[in-house]
Design a protein around this nucleic acid. Structure first.
Length: 502
RNA sequence: GGGGGUAUAGCUCAGCCGGUAGAGCAUCGGCCUUUUAAGCCGCUGGUCCCAGGUUCGAAUCCUGGUGCCCCCA
């Protein structure tokens, strides 16, 4: 809003009516007070007094002060019931004209559903046994100028739920539950890692050389320095610099930015956990992911089985394991396994599958293209896929016995990649060569290929201890545990095209 | 990028073969001291997403556009 006269262009008589009520409050000098203090939350009251017998409760004479948004208002002449919603849940309040100060009940009758109120009173139970506050005083703390959605159907319009998340959160307990669980999940991860002596760190979001993943970055400009900067696509190379520096166990839970399409699985900014651990390899990380996810589902859901969009998923450990080549062969039974690293043979198979084969694709890249096309969606139960081709793993350590592949895994559930981990490539000369290969791909037109990061090579030359690293997509994990079909359902403010206010 | 769906009152939704724009809730006025989507009576409330076209007449049919949702690359 650029000046005081700007108002969204959807004013109507309902809002005008409420503005008139607010104007009356301003005239009376009590429009936006901030001196009411509650002493109880609705949920605490239900927990503490919900089981008490009604008659006994009256003798206890429990005085409480509650506050929240009025979600229900039922006026029956000289008495009313309302429901207040606070951050915990709702509690009913009964108002009787003759128990309130002169004229207060008449004022209350002008208030609207959506207004924020403070109430003091005494607990009792209604004829149906509902715990209720009998009000001896009530105050309007914040006027709600806009009508809330209808009480029975609530707010169901997807676009409004995403654009006006505040209304969604007011109206939909399910939506509130998703974001509470998101917070629980992140807290669980922090506690899990902190208990293993990991150090939580923050590394640059604005980078001169965007590295650590194959993806297109967002580009921005630093005015004072007159230079191009990129929003990070991954924190990886900075975290590994920290391991060089002696922080042997580090992690970061924060946003990455990728300049790609928007879908039910992709948002331009998304949250990743990345962690690095010295003196460990990818096998150690596989065990860690099993312990983390098994423990998390048990702690948060109370079970290791969950239902995602109708599919039952079992997080009991150990999870399944297959190599990339196993998956490719399993889902392409016509394929001759003895030729699975034959570039021309694979190009033929890929062509039959409708994959566009670029001239710079080697056998490893072709394996992954075939894997993505035929295998990925079938990996419904938790499964580690191992032995990723070196060609598509520019930061991973080569396998000692089979240099065609790396000591790397990706973790799949419900046909989606949830995590990616590997033994780190700590040989600076091998790393430099892999960067050069990436640069060749970039020059060949692959704008997702990495750039050469000289400082990172210099860091490796000081010696990165043998280490392993993991990236885990937080948004997709939250989708899984909250049974949410779209990433937008687990982002408080998902990316939307800007609204036009006229 | 391609295909499908959708857009009507603040909200949730009807609107048939093209013929004066509808309901419930909410608002506003009246009644009501134990309600649970409270109830009863009455009154309001519309850029039918936008721009064209067809037609005597378009929320409805056609074309284009936009937002959102879904699927595919």
């Amino acid at each position: 809003m650029t000046n005081d006269n700007d108002r969204p262009g959807d004013e109507n008589e309902l809002i005008a009516e409420r503005r008139r009520k607010l104007d009356a409050l301003r005239v009376a000098g009590i429009a936006y007070p901030n001196d009411f203090r509650r002493n109880a939350l609705a949920e605490e009251l239900h927990r503490t007094y919900g089981g008490h017998d009604g008659g006994h409760l009256v003798k206890e004479d429990v005085h409480v002060k509650v506050a929240g948004r009025m979600m229900v208002k039922r006026v029956m002449g000289k008495a009313s019931f309302i429901k207040l919603q606070d951050r915990s849940t709702q509690i009913q309040v009964r108002l009787e004209r003759d128990r309130l100060a002169e004229g207060l009940y008449q004022d209350f009758k002008k208030w609207d559903v959506g207004d924020v109120l403070g109430v003091s009173g005494t607990l009792f139970k209604t004829q149906t046994g509902e715990l209720t506050v009998m009000a001896d005083d009530i105050r309007l703390l914040t006027k709600c100028l806009r009508p809330l959605p209808e009480k029975y159907h609530g707010l169901s319009d997807q676009e409004t739920r995403y654009r006006q998340r505040y209304v969604d959160l007011i109206m939909n307990e399910q939506s509130r539950a998703v974001f509470r669980m998101r917070s629980q999940i992140v807290s669980y991860i922090r506690a899990f890692l902190d208990s293993q002596d990991y150090l939580e760190v923050e590394t640059p979001m604005m980078q001169a050389i965007p590295g650590g993943a194959n993806a297109r970055p967002f580009k921005t400009h630093h005015n004072a320095l007159d230079m191009t900067l990129y929003l990070r696509i991954a924190p990886e190379l900075f975290l590994k610099r920290l391991v060089v520096g002696g922080f042997e166990r580090v992690y970061e839970i924060n946003r990455n930015f990728r300049n790609e399409g928007v879908s039910t699985q992709h948002n331009p900014e998304f949250t990743m956990l990345e962690l690095y651990r010295a003196y460990a390899d990818f096998e150690d990380l596989i065990q860690m992911v099993e312990a983390l996810l098994g423990g998390m589902t048990e702690a948060i859901l109370g079970t290791t089985t969950l239902v995602y969009q109708g599919q039952t998923i079992d997080f009991a450990v150990p999870f399944g394991r297959m190599s990339v080549e196993d998956v490719v062969c399993k889902f392409n039974p016509q394929l001759d396994r003895s030729r699975i690293r034959d570039r021309e043979y694979l190009a033929g198979i890929a062509g039959e599958l409708g994959i566009k084969v670029e001239p710079n694709y080697g056998a490893g890249k072709l394996q992954i293209e075939i894997f993505d096309k035929t295998g990925e969606a079938a990996l419904v139960q938790p499964t580690f896929i191992t032995s990723y081709p070196t060609e598509v793993s520019p930061l991973s350590r080569r396998n000692d016995d089979d240099p065609f592949v790396t000591d790397r895994f990706e973790f799949f559930v419900t046909g989606r990649e949830l995590a990616n981990g590997f033994s780190e490539l700590n040989d600076p000369e091998d790393q430099a060569e892999r960067f050069r290969e990436q640069v060749r791909n970039r020059d060949a037109g692959d704008d997702e290929a990495m750039a050469f990061d000289h400082d990172y090579i210099r860091a490796l030359e000081y010696g990165l201890p043998p280490a392993a690293g993991l990236g885990l997509g937080i948004d997709r994990l939250v989708m899984l545990l909250t049974d949410s079909p779209s990433i937008r359902d687990v982002l408080l403010f998902p990316y939307m095209r800007p609204e036009i206010f006229e």
